[in-house]
Design a protein around this nucleic acid. Structure first.
Lengths: 150, 150
DNA sequence: AGTCAAAGTTCCCTAAGGGAACCCCAGTTG
DNA sequence: CAACTGGGGTTCCCTTAGGGAACTTTGACT
């Protein structure tokens, strides 16, 4: 499909899409996060084509989001989140929250999140890392940063 | 390409992908958020095919993320974020933060975010909406919710 | 009447996803 | 030791979606 290469763009969103923006990739990460770490498990859970799953897993490993590990002397592997991949789970939680809010309908959210610190069923909320106040679309100005185009 | 329909899945992440998971969609939202609201502006900024841009904009309007507005008696439109779309900006900020952290390299982030409340250059941080403590991958348990599959 | 610009639409070409069949490897079974 | 099994892919073909360029429409300006 001669897809445009987002990785070359001067934009952290585009670069992130270059890593996990292909179809299925976020769902694969979700599965690994949820404990489905083996090829067959993920394939069965998602119903994804084996060919595409192979491609996605390789891509995610190449980009350091997943690590491939042997768990047997037979050629058996499992995929685990690296630190880089673990930080992507924030993204999954924000996606899940938006879907819960806007797309879940009367049935309600398919999954609930219990926060260890307080033990409550809760949601993630974006806060300013500096002052702790809410930080949403209307709360920020965008300024050119050091990595902005020349 | 006979793409699998994520919208039917019992998963808020998959449903969210059904709305904004296609290639280019998050970048289109980024542009609209950043003030590029017209077809020609977005097309020129992204270098996206006009055909695909038309498809994506229609899709986002159909799903209530963008609204199409006339700004002239001539057939001129601009696209603006609805409330539903504005809440998706959280997702963009989290993507941007991850890209800033892991992909920006020595040049540093292309864009900085100044938080209105404190005036500082900052980042969004995921906190528990209930207790305010950090809420990341290792801080939560996943439980089946009311909308879980039967 | 002729020009202009925004916003699409149409057409062709190529590449990517779906699906099913096939393969390889190292244990396990008989 | 031959056959079987199950995880983890690879290969092949078919269809469809993205890229790119050309063309169209609409109302306003000159």
């Amino acid at each position: 499909m001669q897809r445009t290469n987002f990785g070359e763009m001067v934009c952290s969103i585009a670069r992130t899409l270059d890593v996990i923006g292909e179809p299925w990739s976020p769902l694969i990460l979700r599965d690994v996060w949820a404990g489905l770490t083996r090829f067959e498990q993920i394939q069965a859970d998602l119903g994804i084509s084996r060919k595409v799953l192979t491609e996605r897993l390789n891509h995610l490993v190449e980009h350091g989001v997943l690590e491939r590990r042997s768990y047997d002397r037979r050629p058996r592997h499992e995929y685990v989140l690296t630190e880089k991949g673990t930080e992507l789970v924030d993204l999954l939680m924000v996606m899940a929250r938006w879907g819960d809010t806007w797309l879940a309908g009367k049935a309600g959210p398919p999954v609930l999140y219990r926060h260890h610190a307080c033990g409550e069923i809760s949601k993630g909320d974006l806060r300013c890392a500096h002052c702790g106040e809410p930080m949403h679309a209307a709360d920020v100005d965008l300024l050119p940063g050091p990595g902005a185009a020349g």
